[in-house]
Nucleic acid binder design. Structure first.
Lengths: 138, 138
DNA sequence: ATATAGTCTACCTTTTATGTAGGATTTGTG
DNA sequence: CACAAATCCTACATAAAAGGTAGACTATAT
C-alpha cells in the first residue's frame, strides 16, 4: 500500500493539475478541497518542491504550482520520491536494489523471477500514466 | 514493499515445498538455512498454521509441513494473510476495501482507475502463481 | 522419565507514519 | 515603509507497525 503521504500527494497534484491555469494555489485551498491536514500537506508540498516537481511563490497571491505540464509527470516518479521502491522485494527493485539475505543465489530464486514480473507489470502502467491521466475535470 | 514477515514466510514455504517428501521440518532448520531469526520465524510459522496453510507436529520427529500441495497455494493468499491488501490504495482493494476520504466520488476519480489497473496486473500474476512455481530444486 | 519440539503470552526496541506548533522569511500592496 | 499574507523551516509529539526476544507451558517419541 502507498503511504498516506503519497496518497495525499496524488490528490494535491490532481488539484493543481486541474487548476493549472489559475496561477499559484493556496495550501489551505488544497487542504480544504481534499480533506487533508493543512500542516501535513505543507510538508508534502515542500518535499515535492525540493524535488523540482512543484514551484512556489510566497506572500500575497502566492501558493504552489506545477513546474511541468501534467503529462510530463509520471506516477512512478511520485511514488518513488515519497514511498521508495515500487517493487515488492528489495532484491527486485530497479532504483533501490538490495541483495537478498535469505537466498544463496538470486539467479536461481523462483521468488525473484515472479516478483520481477509483478514489478514489470506495475511499472508498465505507472511509468506511462501521468498526472494528466488522473485529471477528470473537463 | 512486502514486510520482512511476508518475505520470510515465502522463503520458509519454499524450503518446506522443496522438502515436502521429508516429513515435518524443524523451525531451526529453516531458520538456519534461510538466515532468519528463529524466534521471529516461530511466530510466522504459527500464523501460517493458524491460517490452515501449515500443519505441525510436536515432540521428537516433529516440525512443520504443508497442508496442501505447493501448486494449491497461491502467492496472493500468503501476501494477503500476512501483509494485508495487495492494492496500492484502500479504495481499490478487493479484500480490504475502504472508502476514499479525499475524493468526492470514486466513480470519477482518475487515481482510482489507474490503481485498479495496477492491482489487476499484479493479481493476474500473484493469483495464478503458486508455491510450486517458486521451487527451483529438481 | 526425559529430551525434543512446537505453543503461547508477554514484553521490548526501533523505525515509520502521521501529524502539530510556532517562529522566520519573503513578497505584494496600500 | 508598514503590514498582512503566504510559504519555509525546524523541532517536537504521538501512535502504530515492524522486527525481534524471553521464558514458561504442553505434547510426544523413545
Amino acid at each position: 500500500m502507498l503511504s498516506k503521504k503519497t496518497q495525499y500527494a496524488f490528490h494535491a497534484l490532481i488539484h493543481l493539475a486541474e487548476n493549472v491555469d489559475k496561477g499559484p494555489i493556496l495550501i489551505s485551498e488544497i487542504a480544504k478541497e481534499k480533506n487533508i491536514s493543512i500542516k501535513f500537506l505543507e510538508n508534502i508540498l515542500l518535499e515535492l518542491k525540493n524535488a523540482g516537481i512543484l514551484g512556489s511563490k510566497k506572500g500575497k497571491g502566492g501558493g504552489y504550482y506545477l513546474m511541468r505540464a501534467p503529462k510530463e509527470i509520471a506516477l512512478a516518479r511520485i511514488i518513488r520520491l515519497l514511498d521508495g521502491p515500487i517493487a515488492l522485494l528489495p532484491c527486485v527493485s530497479l532504483n533501490y536494489y538490495e541483495r537478498c539475505e535469505n537466498c544463496k543465489d538470486e539467479a536461481v530464486c523462483g521468488l525473484h523471477d515472479v516478483m520481477s514480473r509483478v514489478r514489470d507489470a506495475s511499472l508498465k502502467i505507472l511509468e506511462n500514466k501521468t498526472l494528466k491521466d488522473l485529471v477528470t475535470k473537463s
